Amino acid sequence: MNDVGDDAEATARLGVLRIEHRDLDAAIAALADGGGSDQLQLMRLKKRKLRLRDEIAALEDDMIPDIIA
Results as ranks from 00 to 15, higher is better:
residue 1 M to C: 09
residue 1 M to H: 10
residue 2 N to E: 07
residue 2 N to P: 04
residue 2 N to D: 06
residue 3 D to E: 14
residue 4 V to N: 10
residue 4 V to A: 11
residue 5 G to F: 10
residue 6 D to T: 10
residue 6 D to M: 08
residue 7 D to T: 11
residue 7 D to Y: 10
residue 8 A to Q: 13
residue 8 A to L: 14
residue 12 A to S: 10
residue 12 A to K: 08
residue 13 R to A: 09
residue 13 R to T: 09
residue 13 R to M: 06
residue 13 R to K: 13
residue 14 L to Q: 02
residue 14 L to N: 01
residue 14 L to V: 04
residue 14 L to T: 06
residue 15 G to D: 04
residue 15 G to P: 07
residue 15 G to E: 04
residue 15 G to T: 09
residue 16 V to C: 03
residue 17 L to F: 13
residue 17 L to A: 01
residue 17 L to D: 08
residue 18 R to E: 10
residue 19 I to P: 01
residue 19 I to W: 05
residue 19 I to T: 11
residue 20 E to F: 06
residue 20 E to A: 13
residue 20 E to M: 08
residue 21 H to I: 04
residue 21 H to L: 07
residue 23 D to K: 09
residue 23 D to V: 06
residue 24 L to H: 12
residue 24 L to T: 12
residue 25 D to I: 09
residue 25 D to N: 15
residue 26 A to R: 15
residue 26 A to E: 15
residue 27 A to M: 12
residue 27 A to E: 14
residue 27 A to W: 04
residue 28 I to C: 04
residue 29 A to T: 14
residue 31 L to F: 06
residue 31 L to V: 10
residue 32 A to R: 11
residue 32 A to F: 07
residue 32 A to C: 03
residue 32 A to N: 09
residue 33 D to H: 04
residue 34 G to M: 01
residue 37 S to Q: 13
residue 37 S to P: 06
residue 40 L to F: 12
residue 40 L to P: 02
residue 41 Q to C: 02
residue 41 Q to L: 14
residue 41 Q to W: 03
residue 43 M to K: 13
residue 43 M to A: 15
residue 45 L to M: 15
residue 45 L to C: 08
residue 45 L to A: 07
residue 46 K to D: 06
residue 47 K to W: 03
residue 47 K to R: 13
residue 48 R to V: 08
residue 48 R to Q: 14
residue 49 K to M: 08
residue 49 K to N: 08
residue 49 K to H: 10
residue 49 K to V: 02
residue 49 K to I: 05
residue 50 L to R: 11
residue 50 L to D: 12
residue 51 R to W: 03
residue 51 R to P: 03
residue 52 L to D: 01
residue 53 R to A: 15
residue 56 I to G: 00
residue 56 I to W: 00
residue 57 A to V: 10
residue 58 A to N: 00
residue 58 A to S: 01
residue 58 A to D: 00
residue 58 A to P: 00
residue 59 L to I: 00
residue 60 E to D: 03
residue 60 E to M: 00
residue 60 E to F: 00
residue 62 D to T: 03
residue 63 M to P: 06
residue 64 I to Q: 10
residue 65 P to D: 08
residue 66 D to E: 07
residue 67 I to V: 12
residue 68 I to P: 02
residue 68 I to N: 07
residue 68 I to M: 04
residue 69 A to N: 12
residue 69 A to T: 12
